[in-house]
């Protein structure tokens, strides 16, 4: 502002004429997106089956179960992807073998339904740190992903977009598109959908799937243990994805306590009014679990064979 006035435009923009333009950052080297046609198809089917499985058991799920297609498809697709995922899928198929519809429906309601106050939340926002006020943007981000790929939630669907069923269905859709693009040899398109899957996993499901699996494992007291097995399968698949896509998700805290305010600013006394986000408090009466990336001794105490640190063998 040489003329000593506060009037003008943004100084950072004005600086461009006075300072040499910085060298443009080199474009990152193009690396072929990992994956192939076959795994894309199977991954799409696997995510889709997960979505169907985590939804309230209805006619579609019953039909898929009764003729054995659900178990068969699950085994087949998982086997085409990875050994650990295949093992997890086999556990799901086994659990499903003895399960009848009524028992599954009851167990689903007990875990995820409003019938018992949503014992385990299937919603991403529940697991994120901070009050709901600061997390609505995460929901907007999720919606942005859907919108970018021309998807929207059905009018009849009353669930929020961060429900695990929607997240997995979206990942199924991306994988399905990837398969179609690979058939067409559309490299640019493949890169777009793989990048989207990468970002979506890193920014969303990849942050909290392990917490979700832990919660379901802790609370699924049904005879079949279907939902605990299904959650383990989800964890195994996402874990493999994190490894194969070389992702570094920012883990959600394993402590369900809501940080009501920024404690750096307010200290303890700034919390507790609850006026903006008490609902984001997450599932109640949880046992605090260990942080995912800490010492192995703590992992051994977890009472779960799921370890988010151990990726698939890709």
């Amino acid at each position: 502002m040489t003329d000593n006035t506060i009037l003008g435009g943004p100084p950072s923009a004005a600086g461009e004429t006075e300072e040499p333009t910085p060298e443009p950052e080199p474009e990152p080297e193009s690396i072929d997106p990992p994956g192939d046609l076959e795994t894309a198809v199977h991954r799409s089917r696997l995510y889709s089956l997960l979505s169907l499985g985590f939804d309230r058991p209805g006619d579609d799920f019953a039909a898929a179960r009764e003729d054995g297609a659900y178990r068969e498809d699950l085994r087949e697709s998982a086997a085409a992807i990875d050994e650990d995922v295949a093992d997890a899928a086999a556990a799901v198929a086994d659990a499903l073998e003895g399960a009848d519809h009524q028992a599954l429906h009851g167990q689903w309601a007990s875990l995820f339904g409003v019938e018992e106050g949503v014992t385990v939340s299937p919603y991403e926002l529940t697991y994120l740190p901070g009050p709901l006020m600061t997390n609505v943007r995460r929901l907007a981000d999720i919606s942005g992903f859907y919108e970018a790929f021309g998807l929207s939630i059905d009018e009849g669907q009353t669930d929020r977009g961060d429900h695990v069923c929607f997240l997995t269905e979206f990942l199924s859709h991306l994988s399905h598109r990837e398969a179609a693009l690979r058939m067409d040899g559309d490299d640019e398109g493949i890169e777009v959908v793989v990048d989207a899957r990468r970002s979506f996993l890193e920014d969303h499901l990849g942050r909290w799937y392990w917490r979700f699996a832990d919660e379901v494992g802790d609370h699924d007291d049904g005879d079949s243990g279907f939902y605990a097995a299904l959650a383990e399968l989800l964890a195994a698949l996402v874990e493999l994805e994190v490894d194969r896509l070389d992702l570094d998700p920012d883990w959600v805290p394993d402590d369900p306590e809501v940080t009501e305010w920024n404690e750096d600013v307010f200290g303890d006394t700034g919390r507790g009014c609850g006026g903006c986000g008490v609902d984001a408090g997450g599932p109640g009466d949880l046992e605090p679990g260990p942080v995912p990336d800490v010492d192995p001794a703590a992992d051994a105490d977890r009472g779960s064979d799921f370890d988010p640190d151990v990726g698939g063998d890709g």
Binding site: M1, I6, L7, G8, G9, P10, P11, S12, A13, G15
Partner: peptide, 28 residues
Amino acid sequence: YAACAGSCPVPAIYKREEDGVVLIDEES
């Protein structure tokens, strides 16, 4: 005569010529 703009050492704060809105340039 915004004091925020008037006090900024950078200066990163400016008043838009077109509408007088006072903004902080977050880049600066």
